[in-house]
Simulated scan of single mutants.
Amino acid sequence: MTPASPRPAAGDHRLTLDVGGKQRSVLLHVPPGYTGTNPVPLVVALHFYPGSGERLRDMIGMDAKADEHGFLVAYPDGVAGGFNALVCCGAEATSPS
């Protein structure tokens, strides 16, 4: 999303961003009642290796907490299933993720 993008409605949104020439995807959960007029916290939930944002979302129940307390949750997908942590990610470990 860019500053000129419309505010997301309540619910789940699959977003795709171009980062350094790579298409990156993120699942964004927006709580009910979110209008975008007031700042709210954003929790970025990084998944395990190998994994995906959607798999983490299904495991941890953060969406229910976001709905209860009024914050956004972003579940990005790492490159090749990871986030360049230690030596887990093979050749992708040399490029930022």
Rank of each mutant, 00 (worst) to 15 (best):
M1Q: 11
G20Q: 12
V43I: 12
P50G: 04
A80P: 00
P96T: 04
L72T: 10
G53C: 07
A45L: 02
R55H: 14
F71P: 12
G90W: 08
S52N: 09
D67V: 04
E68K: 15
L28C: 09
G20H: 11
V43P: 00
F48I: 09
D63V: 11
T2A: 13
K65R: 15
Y34E: 01
Y49A: 02
L15A: 05
D18Q: 14
R14I: 14
L28Q: 10
P8T: 01
N84T: 12
G36K: 12
S97L: 00
P50K: 05
P3K: 08
M1N: 15
Y49M: 08
H29L: 06
S52R: 02
E92H: 13
R7P: 02
A74F: 08
L56I: 00
G11H: 05
G61I: 03
G61Y: 09
V79D: 11
P3G: 06
L72K: 13
D67T: 06
P41S: 13
N38C: 00
T37A: 13
L86A: 06
V26K: 01
E54W: 02
L27K: 03
L17M: 10
V79Q: 03
H47G: 02
L72R: 12
G51H: 08
T35A: 11
D58T: 12
P41L: 09
G20W: 08
V30H: 08
V79F: 09
V19G: 04
H69C: 00
I60V: 15
L17I: 02
M1A: 15
P3F: 07
I60D: 12
D63A: 03
G33L: 05
E54H: 04
A80W: 07
G21K: 09
P39D: 11
A91F: 09
M59I: 02
S52G: 13
L42C: 14
S25C: 06
H29W: 00
G61C: 04
Y49P: 06
A4V: 07
P3T: 09
A91N: 11
L15T: 04
M62Q: 04
N84V: 08
T35S: 15
G70D: 01
I60H: 06
R7K: 13
S97F: 00
D12Q: 05
R55Y: 05
L86I: 00
L28A: 02
V30S: 09
R7I: 14
H47E: 02
C88K: 00
I60G: 03
L72M: 15
P96I: 10
H29A: 08
L27A: 09
E68A: 15
A64K: 12
V43N: 01
L86P: 00
R14C: 10
G90L: 07
G53M: 03
Q23L: 14
T35V: 04
L72Q: 10
G51L: 11
P6R: 15
T37Q: 14
H13T: 11
E92P: 01
A4R: 14
L56D: 08
M1R: 11
G70F: 06
D58M: 06
A66G: 13
I60A: 10
A64N: 12
V44M: 12
D58L: 10
C89A: 07
F48N: 14
R7E: 09
R57D: 01
L27F: 05
G78E: 13
T35L: 10
L86D: 06
V26T: 10
H13Q: 11
G51N: 10
P32K: 08
M62H: 04
T2L: 11
S25D: 04
P76G: 11
I60T: 08
P39A: 12
V26Q: 05
K22D: 10
G11T: 07
P39G: 05
F83Y: 14
